[in-house]
Design a protein around this nucleic acid. Structure first.
Length: 421
RNA sequence: GCGGUUGUGGUGAAGCUGGUUAACACACCAGAUUGUGGCUCUGGCAUUCGCGAGUUCGAGUCUCGUCAAUCGCCCCA
Protein backbone atom coordinates (compact mmCIF):
# COMPACT_ATOMS: atom_id res chain seq x y z
CA UNK A 1 0.00 0.00 0.00
CA UNK A 2 1.17 3.51 -0.73
CA UNK A 3 2.58 5.44 2.19
CA UNK A 4 0.23 7.90 3.77
CA UNK A 5 -0.08 10.09 6.81
CA UNK A 6 -1.43 8.57 10.00
CA UNK A 7 -5.20 8.77 10.33
CA UNK A 8 -6.34 12.06 11.71
CA UNK A 9 -2.99 13.76 11.08
CA UNK A 10 -2.56 16.08 8.17
CA UNK A 11 0.12 17.80 6.18
CA UNK A 12 0.07 21.55 6.30
CA UNK A 13 0.96 22.57 2.77
CA UNK A 14 2.25 26.03 1.82
CA UNK A 15 -1.15 27.61 1.15
CA UNK A 16 -2.36 26.64 4.58
CA UNK A 17 0.97 27.21 6.25
CA UNK A 18 0.77 30.90 5.37
CA UNK A 19 -2.45 31.07 7.37
CA UNK A 20 -0.87 29.35 10.34
CA UNK A 21 1.98 31.83 10.19
CA UNK A 22 -0.42 34.71 10.08
CA UNK A 23 -2.38 33.42 13.08
CA UNK A 24 0.78 32.57 15.03
CA UNK A 25 2.23 36.01 14.48
CA UNK A 26 -0.88 37.77 15.65
CA UNK A 27 -1.07 35.53 18.69
CA UNK A 28 2.54 36.28 19.57
CA UNK A 29 1.78 39.94 19.24
CA UNK A 30 -1.06 39.60 21.74
CA UNK A 31 1.17 37.67 24.11
CA UNK A 32 3.55 40.59 24.06
CA UNK A 33 0.79 43.12 24.56
CA UNK A 34 -0.46 41.34 27.65
CA UNK A 35 2.92 40.42 29.04
CA UNK A 36 2.99 36.69 28.38
CA UNK A 37 6.19 34.95 27.42
CA UNK A 38 6.37 32.17 24.91
CA UNK A 39 7.53 28.78 26.17
CA UNK A 40 7.87 25.29 24.87
CA UNK A 41 7.40 22.10 26.80
CA UNK A 42 7.96 18.56 25.50
CA UNK A 43 5.34 16.91 23.35
CA UNK A 44 5.78 13.71 25.35
CA UNK A 45 5.32 13.58 29.11
CA UNK A 46 5.09 10.80 31.66
CA UNK A 47 1.51 9.61 31.64
CA UNK A 48 1.18 10.61 35.28
CA UNK A 49 1.34 14.26 34.26
CA UNK A 50 -2.04 13.94 32.61
CA UNK A 51 -3.65 11.54 35.06
CA UNK A 52 -5.18 13.18 38.08
CA UNK A 53 -6.62 11.17 40.92
CA UNK A 54 -10.36 10.79 40.58
CA UNK A 55 -10.36 12.18 37.08
CA UNK A 56 -13.29 10.82 35.17
CA UNK A 57 -13.21 12.57 31.83
CA UNK A 58 -13.03 10.33 28.79
CA UNK A 59 -10.12 12.28 27.46
CA UNK A 60 -7.95 11.04 30.26
CA UNK A 61 -9.38 7.57 30.47
CA UNK A 62 -9.30 6.50 26.86
CA UNK A 63 -8.46 9.22 24.36
CA UNK A 64 -4.74 9.59 24.75
CA UNK A 65 -1.82 8.31 22.73
CA UNK A 66 -0.10 6.35 25.46
CA UNK A 67 2.78 3.96 25.02
CA UNK A 68 5.56 2.32 26.93
CA UNK A 69 9.22 2.54 26.00
CA UNK A 70 11.51 -0.37 26.81
CA UNK A 71 9.04 -1.84 29.27
CA UNK A 72 9.64 1.03 31.60
CA UNK A 73 7.72 4.22 32.03
CA UNK A 74 4.36 4.89 30.49
CA UNK A 75 4.58 7.94 28.24
CA UNK A 76 1.84 10.00 26.63
CA UNK A 77 1.66 12.41 23.75
CA UNK A 78 0.23 15.51 25.34
CA UNK A 79 -3.54 15.84 24.83
CA UNK A 80 -3.57 19.43 26.10
CA UNK A 81 -1.15 22.11 27.13
CA UNK A 82 -1.95 23.06 30.70
CA UNK A 83 -0.63 19.97 32.49
CA UNK A 84 2.78 20.20 30.85
CA UNK A 85 3.09 23.89 31.60
CA UNK A 86 2.25 23.31 35.24
CA UNK A 87 4.67 20.44 35.51
CA UNK A 88 7.31 22.75 34.11
CA UNK A 89 6.26 25.58 36.42
CA UNK A 90 6.74 23.31 39.40
CA UNK A 91 9.88 21.53 38.21
CA UNK A 92 11.66 24.80 37.39
CA UNK A 93 10.37 26.50 40.54
CA UNK A 94 9.05 29.39 38.53
CA UNK A 95 6.77 30.16 41.47
CA UNK A 96 9.67 31.58 43.42
CA UNK A 97 9.83 34.75 41.36
CA UNK A 98 7.45 37.51 40.46
CA UNK A 99 3.82 36.39 40.40
CA UNK A 100 1.75 35.74 38.46
CA UNK A 101 3.91 33.86 36.02
CA UNK A 102 2.39 34.42 32.61
CA UNK A 103 3.24 31.88 29.96
CA UNK A 104 2.09 31.34 26.40
CA UNK A 105 2.56 28.42 24.11
CA UNK A 106 1.90 27.24 20.59
CA UNK A 107 2.12 23.52 20.06
CA UNK A 108 0.82 20.26 18.76
CA UNK A 109 -1.59 18.22 20.84
CA UNK A 110 -2.68 14.63 20.31
CA UNK A 111 -5.96 12.94 21.04
CA UNK A 112 -7.01 9.51 19.94
CA UNK A 113 -10.50 10.30 18.71
CA UNK A 114 -12.46 9.65 15.56
CA UNK A 115 -11.58 12.46 13.17
CA UNK A 116 -14.26 14.71 11.76
CA UNK A 117 -14.67 18.30 10.81
CA UNK A 118 -12.70 20.46 13.21
CA UNK A 119 -11.34 17.45 15.04
CA UNK A 120 -8.00 15.87 14.31
CA UNK A 121 -5.78 13.46 16.14
CA UNK A 122 -2.92 15.90 15.92
CA UNK A 123 -3.88 19.52 16.20
CA UNK A 124 -2.39 22.79 17.31
CA UNK A 125 -3.28 24.85 20.31
CA UNK A 126 -2.43 28.43 21.11
CA UNK A 127 -2.66 28.84 24.83
CA UNK A 128 -1.80 30.88 27.87
CA UNK A 129 -1.58 30.23 31.59
CA UNK A 130 -1.34 32.83 34.34
CA UNK A 131 -0.12 31.14 37.51
CA UNK A 132 0.09 32.26 41.08
CA UNK A 133 -2.64 34.81 41.42
CA UNK A 134 -6.34 34.59 41.98
CA UNK A 135 -8.15 37.74 41.08
CA UNK A 136 -11.40 38.19 39.18
CA UNK A 137 -9.88 41.01 37.18
CA UNK A 138 -7.19 38.65 35.97
CA UNK A 139 -9.91 36.26 34.85
CA UNK A 140 -11.55 39.04 32.90
CA UNK A 141 -8.24 40.04 31.43
CA UNK A 142 -7.47 36.51 30.27
CA UNK A 143 -10.82 36.32 28.51
CA UNK A 144 -10.19 39.74 27.04
CA UNK A 145 -6.88 38.62 25.60
CA UNK A 146 -8.44 35.67 23.81
CA UNK A 147 -11.48 37.58 22.75
CA UNK A 148 -9.65 40.50 21.23
CA UNK A 149 -7.15 38.21 19.57
CA UNK A 150 -9.94 36.35 17.80
CA UNK A 151 -11.73 39.58 16.98
CA UNK A 152 -8.60 41.21 15.64
CA UNK A 153 -7.96 38.19 13.47
CA UNK A 154 -11.23 39.07 11.85
CA UNK A 155 -13.75 36.53 13.09
CA UNK A 156 -17.17 38.01 13.53
CA UNK A 157 -19.54 35.17 14.30
CA UNK A 158 -18.43 34.39 17.83
CA UNK A 159 -20.03 34.27 21.21
CA UNK A 160 -18.51 34.11 24.67
CA UNK A 161 -20.11 31.68 27.11
CA UNK A 162 -19.21 31.81 30.76
CA UNK A 163 -20.11 30.02 33.93
CA UNK A 164 -18.79 29.37 37.37
CA UNK A 165 -18.32 26.01 39.01
CA UNK A 166 -17.70 27.59 42.37
CA UNK A 167 -14.88 26.70 44.68
CA UNK A 168 -14.16 23.11 45.58
CA UNK A 169 -16.72 22.86 48.33
CA UNK A 170 -19.51 24.51 46.31
CA UNK A 171 -18.71 22.20 43.51
CA UNK A 172 -18.80 19.07 45.62
CA UNK A 173 -22.13 20.02 47.14
CA UNK A 174 -23.60 20.73 43.76
CA UNK A 175 -22.35 17.51 42.31
CA UNK A 176 -23.96 15.55 45.12
CA UNK A 177 -27.23 17.39 44.68
CA UNK A 178 -27.29 16.73 40.97
CA UNK A 179 -26.55 13.11 41.43
CA UNK A 180 -29.33 12.73 43.96
CA UNK A 181 -31.74 14.59 41.75
CA UNK A 182 -31.08 12.65 38.57
CA UNK A 183 -31.01 9.37 40.43
CA UNK A 184 -34.78 9.66 40.78
CA UNK A 185 -35.11 9.80 37.02
CA UNK A 186 -32.45 7.28 36.13
CA UNK A 187 -34.84 5.25 33.98
CA UNK A 188 -35.82 8.28 31.96
CA UNK A 189 -32.29 9.27 31.10
CA UNK A 190 -30.67 8.28 27.85
CA UNK A 191 -28.08 5.51 28.05
CA UNK A 192 -25.19 7.94 27.85
CA UNK A 193 -26.58 9.96 30.70
CA UNK A 194 -27.12 6.93 32.87
CA UNK A 195 -23.45 6.39 32.44
CA UNK A 196 -22.68 10.05 33.14
CA UNK A 197 -24.72 9.90 36.29
CA UNK A 198 -21.98 7.83 37.87
CA UNK A 199 -19.02 9.38 36.16
CA UNK A 200 -19.75 13.04 35.67
CA UNK A 201 -23.27 14.18 36.51
CA UNK A 202 -22.55 17.76 35.46
CA UNK A 203 -22.35 16.58 31.89
CA UNK A 204 -25.98 15.51 31.92
CA UNK A 205 -26.94 19.15 31.88
CA UNK A 206 -25.83 19.71 28.32
CA UNK A 207 -26.96 16.38 26.91
CA UNK A 208 -28.57 16.91 23.53
CA UNK A 209 -31.00 14.02 23.92
CA UNK A 210 -32.28 14.69 27.42
CA UNK A 211 -32.12 18.42 27.09
CA UNK A 212 -35.83 18.99 26.66
CA UNK A 213 -37.17 16.41 29.06
CA UNK A 214 -39.41 17.73 31.81
CA UNK A 215 -37.28 16.88 34.79
CA UNK A 216 -34.43 18.96 33.35
CA UNK A 217 -36.16 22.20 34.11
CA UNK A 218 -36.15 21.54 37.85
CA UNK A 219 -32.63 20.22 38.10
CA UNK A 220 -30.56 21.91 40.77
CA UNK A 221 -28.67 24.96 39.53
CA UNK A 222 -25.06 25.69 40.34
CA UNK A 223 -26.03 29.19 41.31
CA UNK A 224 -27.99 27.82 44.28
CA UNK A 225 -24.97 26.01 45.61
CA UNK A 226 -22.36 28.69 45.39
CA UNK A 227 -20.71 29.87 48.56
CA UNK A 228 -20.90 33.60 49.20
CA UNK A 229 -17.25 33.98 48.20
CA UNK A 230 -17.70 32.04 44.98
CA UNK A 231 -20.74 34.09 44.09
CA UNK A 232 -18.95 37.37 44.77
CA UNK A 233 -15.97 36.20 42.76
CA UNK A 234 -18.08 35.36 39.74
CA UNK A 235 -19.93 38.66 39.94
CA UNK A 236 -16.61 40.46 39.96
CA UNK A 237 -15.47 38.59 36.85
CA UNK A 238 -18.66 39.55 35.07
CA UNK A 239 -18.26 43.16 36.18
CA UNK A 240 -14.78 43.06 34.69
CA UNK A 241 -16.12 41.83 31.37
CA UNK A 242 -18.80 44.52 31.40
CA UNK A 243 -16.14 47.10 31.99
CA UNK A 244 -14.20 45.84 29.00
CA UNK A 245 -17.31 45.74 26.83
CA UNK A 246 -17.00 42.07 26.17
CA UNK A 247 -20.39 40.58 25.42
CA UNK A 248 -21.04 37.24 27.11
CA UNK A 249 -23.76 34.74 27.81
CA UNK A 250 -24.02 33.02 31.17
CA UNK A 251 -24.51 29.36 30.46
CA UNK A 252 -25.17 27.28 33.55
CA UNK A 253 -24.74 24.06 31.64
CA UNK A 254 -21.18 24.93 30.68
CA UNK A 255 -18.98 22.57 32.64
CA UNK A 256 -15.96 21.81 30.42
CA UNK A 257 -14.35 18.49 29.90
CA UNK A 258 -11.47 18.52 32.30
CA UNK A 259 -12.19 17.97 35.93
CA UNK A 260 -9.72 20.40 37.42
CA UNK A 261 -11.63 23.61 36.82
CA UNK A 262 -13.01 25.67 39.68
CA UNK A 263 -14.78 29.01 39.66
CA UNK A 264 -14.64 30.67 36.26
CA UNK A 265 -15.01 28.54 33.15
CA UNK A 266 -15.55 29.90 29.67
CA UNK A 267 -15.78 28.94 26.07
CA UNK A 268 -15.79 30.99 22.94
CA UNK A 269 -17.91 29.44 20.26
CA UNK A 270 -18.46 30.16 16.65
CA UNK A 271 -21.96 30.81 15.51
CA UNK A 272 -20.93 30.37 11.89
CA UNK A 273 -22.60 27.50 10.09
CA UNK A 274 -19.27 26.22 8.80
CA UNK A 275 -18.21 25.19 12.28
CA UNK A 276 -20.17 21.95 12.11
CA UNK A 277 -20.39 19.88 15.25
CA UNK A 278 -17.21 21.38 16.68
CA UNK A 279 -18.08 24.96 17.36
CA UNK A 280 -15.83 25.73 20.29
CA UNK A 281 -12.86 27.82 19.21
CA UNK A 282 -11.33 28.11 22.58
CA UNK A 283 -12.04 27.31 26.15
CA UNK A 284 -10.47 27.56 29.52
CA UNK A 285 -10.95 28.42 33.09
CA UNK A 286 -9.51 28.75 36.54
CA UNK A 287 -8.03 25.90 38.51
CA UNK A 288 -7.47 26.31 42.22
CA UNK A 289 -6.02 22.95 43.14
CA UNK A 290 -4.23 21.68 40.09
CA UNK A 291 -0.83 23.11 40.92
CA UNK A 292 -0.89 21.69 44.40
CA UNK A 293 -2.24 18.34 43.25
CA UNK A 294 0.66 18.07 40.87
CA UNK A 295 3.12 18.61 43.67
CA UNK A 296 3.57 22.36 43.62
CA UNK A 297 2.67 25.09 46.07
CA UNK A 298 -0.94 25.98 46.81
CA UNK A 299 -1.44 28.39 43.96
CA UNK A 300 -4.31 29.11 41.68
CA UNK A 301 -4.03 29.49 37.96
CA UNK A 302 -6.09 30.36 34.95
CA UNK A 303 -5.64 29.74 31.27
CA UNK A 304 -7.20 28.93 27.96
CA UNK A 305 -6.35 27.09 24.79
CA UNK A 306 -7.39 27.95 21.27
CA UNK A 307 -7.80 25.29 18.60
CA UNK A 308 -5.77 26.74 15.77
CA UNK A 309 -7.11 24.46 13.02
CA UNK A 310 -10.66 25.33 13.99
CA UNK A 311 -9.78 28.96 14.05
CA UNK A 312 -8.34 28.72 10.56
CA UNK A 313 -11.30 26.70 9.32
CA UNK A 314 -13.63 29.44 10.46
CA UNK A 315 -11.31 32.14 9.23
CA UNK A 316 -11.49 30.56 5.80
CA UNK A 317 -15.26 30.38 5.99
CA UNK A 318 -15.42 34.03 6.97
CA UNK A 319 -12.85 34.97 4.34
CA UNK A 320 -10.33 36.65 6.60
CA UNK A 321 -7.20 35.41 4.86
CA UNK A 322 -5.50 36.76 1.81
CA UNK A 323 -5.37 33.93 -0.67
CA UNK A 324 -2.60 35.43 -2.74
CA UNK A 325 0.70 33.75 -2.92
CA UNK A 326 3.38 36.32 -2.16
CA UNK A 327 4.80 37.86 -5.29
CA UNK A 328 8.33 37.90 -6.49
CA UNK A 329 10.50 40.91 -7.20
CA UNK A 330 12.56 39.36 -9.95
CA UNK A 331 12.41 36.20 -12.00
CA UNK A 332 15.63 35.39 -13.78
CA UNK A 333 15.32 33.74 -17.15
CA UNK A 334 18.29 31.71 -18.21
CA UNK A 335 18.66 31.06 -21.91
CA UNK A 336 22.07 29.49 -21.55
CA UNK A 337 21.05 26.42 -19.60
CA UNK A 338 22.74 26.90 -16.23
CA UNK A 339 25.33 29.55 -16.72
CA UNK A 340 27.13 30.64 -13.52
CA UNK A 341 26.53 34.27 -14.46
CA UNK A 342 22.82 33.66 -13.88
CA UNK A 343 23.43 32.56 -10.33
CA UNK A 344 25.72 35.52 -9.82
CA UNK A 345 22.94 37.91 -10.84
CA UNK A 346 20.32 36.14 -8.74
CA UNK A 347 22.58 36.12 -5.71
CA UNK A 348 23.36 39.81 -6.02
CA UNK A 349 19.62 40.50 -6.11
CA UNK A 350 18.92 38.33 -3.09
CA UNK A 351 21.77 39.79 -1.11
CA UNK A 352 20.11 43.14 -1.57
CA UNK A 353 16.75 42.00 -0.39
CA UNK A 354 14.97 41.27 -3.63
CA UNK A 355 12.87 38.12 -3.66
CA UNK A 356 14.29 36.30 -6.63
CA UNK A 357 13.54 33.07 -8.43
CA UNK A 358 15.77 31.51 -11.06
CA UNK A 359 14.91 29.15 -13.83
CA UNK A 360 17.57 26.48 -14.06
CA UNK A 361 15.62 24.21 -16.31
CA UNK A 362 16.43 24.09 -19.97
CA UNK A 363 13.24 25.20 -21.61
CA UNK A 364 11.97 27.65 -24.14
CA UNK A 365 11.88 31.35 -23.54
CA UNK A 366 8.14 31.22 -23.82
CA UNK A 367 7.87 28.58 -21.16
CA UNK A 368 10.10 30.62 -18.89
CA UNK A 369 7.94 33.68 -19.33
CA UNK A 370 4.90 31.64 -18.38
CA UNK A 371 6.72 30.40 -15.33
CA UNK A 372 7.61 33.99 -14.38
CA UNK A 373 3.98 34.89 -14.66
CA UNK A 374 2.94 32.12 -12.32
CA UNK A 375 5.32 33.49 -9.75
CA UNK A 376 3.79 36.94 -10.21
CA UNK A 377 7.20 38.42 -10.76
CA UNK A 378 7.34 42.20 -10.94
CA UNK A 379 10.54 42.18 -13.01
CA UNK A 380 11.88 39.62 -15.39
CA UNK A 381 15.63 39.50 -15.97
CA UNK A 382 16.70 37.83 -19.17
CA UNK A 383 20.15 36.43 -19.53
CA UNK A 384 21.35 35.01 -22.82
CA UNK A 385 24.59 34.91 -24.65
CA UNK A 386 24.77 38.65 -25.31
CA UNK A 387 24.09 39.55 -21.70
CA UNK A 388 26.59 37.07 -20.38
CA UNK A 389 29.31 38.27 -22.71
CA UNK A 390 28.70 41.95 -21.97
CA UNK A 391 28.01 41.45 -18.25
CA UNK A 392 24.57 42.97 -18.67
CA UNK A 393 21.00 42.01 -17.91
CA UNK A 394 17.90 42.65 -19.96
CA UNK A 395 15.29 43.71 -17.48
CA UNK A 396 11.63 43.78 -18.32
CA UNK A 397 9.04 45.48 -16.15
CA UNK A 398 5.95 43.29 -16.09
CA UNK A 399 3.70 46.23 -15.30
CA UNK A 400 4.26 48.31 -18.42
CA UNK A 401 6.16 45.69 -20.44
CA UNK A 402 9.02 48.13 -20.94
CA UNK A 403 12.49 46.72 -21.26
CA UNK A 404 15.99 48.05 -20.62
CA UNK A 405 19.47 46.64 -20.91
CA UNK A 406 21.50 47.33 -17.79
CA UNK A 407 25.11 46.69 -16.87
CA UNK A 408 25.48 44.29 -13.99
CA UNK A 409 26.65 47.07 -11.69
CA UNK A 410 23.69 49.28 -12.59
CA UNK A 411 21.06 46.66 -11.90
CA UNK A 412 20.61 47.17 -8.18
CA UNK A 413 20.56 50.91 -8.42
CA UNK A 414 17.92 50.71 -11.10
CA UNK A 415 15.73 48.39 -9.03
CA UNK A 416 16.16 50.49 -5.91
CA UNK A 417 14.78 53.40 -7.84
CA UNK A 418 11.89 51.39 -9.26
CA UNK A 419 10.72 49.43 -6.26
CA UNK A 420 12.99 50.08 -3.34
CA UNK A 421 11.28 51.98 -0.58
C1' G B 1 -16.10 2.91 20.54
C1' C B 2 -21.11 3.53 17.40
C1' G B 3 -24.00 5.05 12.84
C1' G B 4 -24.65 7.40 7.71
C1' U B 5 -22.39 8.83 2.94
C1' U B 6 -18.43 8.61 -0.48
C1' G B 7 -13.69 6.70 -3.12
C1' U B 8 -12.52 7.19 -11.36
C1' G B 9 -5.84 11.39 -13.93
C1' G B 10 -2.59 17.03 -10.85
C1' U B 11 -7.95 19.16 -10.20
C1' G B 12 -13.43 19.18 -11.16
C1' A B 13 -15.85 15.30 -12.86
C1' A B 14 -19.02 11.74 -17.05
C1' G B 15 -19.57 6.61 -17.26
C1' C B 16 -27.46 4.68 -18.10
C1' U B 17 -30.37 -1.84 -15.94
C1' G B 18 -22.22 -5.25 -16.02
C1' G B 19 -20.70 -5.70 -22.74
C1' U B 20 -15.06 -4.85 -23.70
C1' U B 21 -10.92 2.15 -27.08
C1' A B 22 -12.48 5.35 -19.46
C1' A B 23 -16.11 11.24 -22.09
C1' C B 24 -15.57 16.43 -21.29
C1' A B 25 -13.33 20.76 -18.89
C1' C B 26 -9.32 23.03 -16.28
C1' A B 27 -4.23 22.54 -15.16
C1' C B 28 0.42 20.79 -17.00
C1' C B 29 4.18 19.57 -21.10
C1' A B 30 5.76 20.17 -26.29
C1' G B 31 5.26 22.51 -31.02
C1' A B 32 3.21 26.17 -34.69
C1' U B 33 6.51 31.15 -33.21
C1' U B 34 14.93 28.45 -32.68
C1' G B 35 15.31 35.93 -27.60
C1' U B 36 9.52 37.80 -25.14
C1' G B 37 4.30 36.58 -21.46
C1' G B 38 -2.17 37.12 -24.22
C1' C B 39 -5.25 34.63 -27.98
C1' U B 40 -5.70 30.71 -31.44
C1' C B 41 -4.40 26.02 -33.45
C1' U B 42 -1.86 21.03 -33.24
C1' G B 43 -0.16 17.09 -30.38
C1' G B 44 0.99 14.74 -25.49
C1' C B 45 -0.78 13.54 -20.57
C1' A B 46 -5.37 7.31 -16.18
C1' U B 47 -1.59 -0.05 -19.34
C1' U B 48 -6.67 1.54 -15.55
C1' C B 49 -11.21 3.14 -11.99
C1' G B 50 -8.55 3.40 -3.30
C1' C B 51 -6.75 -1.78 -2.19
C1' G B 52 -7.85 -7.29 -1.93
C1' A B 53 -10.92 -11.27 -2.85
C1' G B 54 -15.53 -13.24 -5.06
C1' U B 55 -19.83 -13.69 -8.75
C1' U B 56 -19.74 -13.76 -14.29
C1' C B 57 -18.15 -15.69 -20.85
C1' G B 58 -17.23 -10.52 -19.42
C1' A B 59 -16.72 -5.88 -13.54
C1' G B 60 -15.34 1.21 -13.08
C1' U B 61 -20.32 -0.72 -12.83
C1' C B 62 -22.84 -6.49 -8.62
C1' U B 63 -21.21 -9.01 -3.50
C1' C B 64 -17.91 -9.32 0.66
C1' G B 65 -13.73 -7.61 3.13
C1' U B 66 -10.23 -3.79 3.90
C1' C B 67 -8.11 1.14 3.86
C1' A B 68 -9.12 6.22 3.49
C1' A B 69 -12.07 10.63 3.29
C1' U B 70 -16.33 12.94 5.05
C1' C B 71 -20.76 14.01 8.24
C1' G B 72 -23.03 12.96 12.86
C1' C B 73 -23.03 10.40 18.00
C1' C B 74 -19.68 9.99 22.08
C1' C B 75 -15.96 13.19 23.76
C1' C B 76 -13.72 17.73 23.14
C1' A B 77 -9.80 22.54 21.10
Amino acid sequence: MALQAVKGMYDILPDRMRKFEHVDNLFKYFLELYGYELTKTPIVEYTKVFQKDNDTSDMVTKEMFTFTMNHKDSLTLRPEGTAGIIRSFIQNKLYSGELPVKLGYIGEMFRYERPQKGRQRQFTQLGIEALGEKNPLLDAEVIALGYSFVKTLGLKAISVCINTLGDNSSRMAYRQALKAYFEQYRDLLCLDCQNRLDKNPLRILDCKIDHDKEFMANAPKISDYLSAEAKAYFDAVLAGLDLLNIPYVIDESLVRGLDYYTDTVFEVKSTHEASGAQSTIFGGGRYDSLVEEMGGPDMSGIGFAIGEERLILLGEAEGIFEEEKPSLDVYVIDLLASDPYVLKVATALRNNGYKTEVNYKKRSLKAQFKSAERFKARFIAIIGEDERNDMTVTLKDSLDKSQVILRFDELLEYLDEKIGD
